[in-house]
């Protein structure tokens, strides 16, 4: 994988939503999944250097495990309650997996590629890898890598049945990283992703939901993970802390689960 620079990192939960008024107006029909992703990306773009990149050279990579699942159910409610022919077209258009990506491209004027991917394992790491490939190919000069999940009572209930415990599904939240090509200046001042390697293996598919056995390994410390987006929050938080501390050098990060393993090597 070609190396790329991280120009900005943000993580946000729905409880922290704080959008400017003009965005709130534009998002009045959007679901919480989209609003959270937009808010997180808004913060990410605002804290990244403004490089004057044309809209055609900015790419969007959105990864999610379950996407706007609750919006899908709201459309189903509309179909079941209002009947065929009366279902809400707005809910249907928002239930499509890439609806949030559509909002992102419109609100932030992104005319480059917009790719939404679905993965039960580590969708954020998958989009980071694909974003890095597209940056290297020359098609884009900046990539917005986003991952988001929407709280689902149905999946929480299913997880509790599977685990026979008080399992909690993650709250609606998002992580956004802004990635840029590496320049000589960036080499000195930025965080560089040197490598991402993801491998998958067969598993009991229930673990995609329960996350049983998932853990992050960083600097000889094993940290257990119990929620869907936790790996992305944790990685973002650890990088932010390392950057604040002024540490330099290589940073190796690993996440393991019954469904595979992913390794990231960064340099500060």
């Amino acid at each position: 994988m070609p190396a790329v620079a991280i120009s900005s990192l943000q993580a946000l939960t729905q409880q922290q939503l704080d959008l400017p008024a003009d965005y709130r107006k534009k998002l009045r029909r959007a679901d919480e999944f989209t609003k959270t992703i937009i808010n997180c990306t808004y913060l990410g773009l605002n804290s990244a250097p403004q490089l004057g990149i044309v809209p055609e050279k900015i790419g969007l990579f959105l990864g999610t495990s379950f996407g706007p699942l609750e919006t899908n159910f709201h459309f189903l409610d509309s179909l079941l309650e209002d009947g065929e022919g009366q279902a809400s077209p707005t809910l249907f258009s928002h239930s499509v997996h890439n609806a949030a990506a559509g909002y992102l491209t419109r609100l932030f004027s992104i005319n480059g590629p917009a790719i939404t991917i679905s993965s039960y394992a580590w969708p954020f790491l998958a989009v980071l890898e694909q974003a890095a490939l597209m940056l290297h190919s020359g098609i884009i000069d900046r990539a917005i890598a986003v991952s988001g999940e929407m709280y689902s009572p149905l999946l929480e209930h299913a997880g509790q049945q599977l685990e026979k415990s008080s399992y909690k599904f993650c709250k609606t939240g998002a992580v956004t990283w802004i990635l840029d090509k590496i320049t000589e200046k960036k080499k000195e001042n930025n965080i560089i992703i040197n490598k991402i390697a993801i491998s998958y293996k067969p598993c009991n598919v229930a673990t995609f939901l329960t996350r049983k056995g998932e853990e992050c390994i960083v600097e000889n410390e094993n940290i257990k993970i119990s929620e869907l987006l936790s790996y992305a929050y944790l990685l973002t938080d650890q990088i932010q802390k390392k950057r604040s501390s002024g540490d330099k050098g290589e940073f190796k990060w690993c996440v393991k689960a019954p469904f595979g393993q992913a390794n990231i090597i960064l340099s500060f």
Binding site: G67, V96, H97, N98, A101, A114, I115, T116, I117, S118, S119, Y120, A121, A126, E129, Q130, I198, S199, Y200, P202, V205, A206, F208, L209, F259
Partner: peptide, 26 residues
């Protein structure tokens, strides 16, 4: 549903390793 990530499922059934992705661009 959890067994329906098409790329993961296909790799698991065929028994191959490599990059895997489900694209949901409508």
């Amino acid at each position: 549903y959890l067994n329906s990530n098409l790329a993961y499922w296909l790799q698991t059934v065929i028994g191959v390793e490599g990059p895997s992705m489900v694209i949901t661009n409508a």
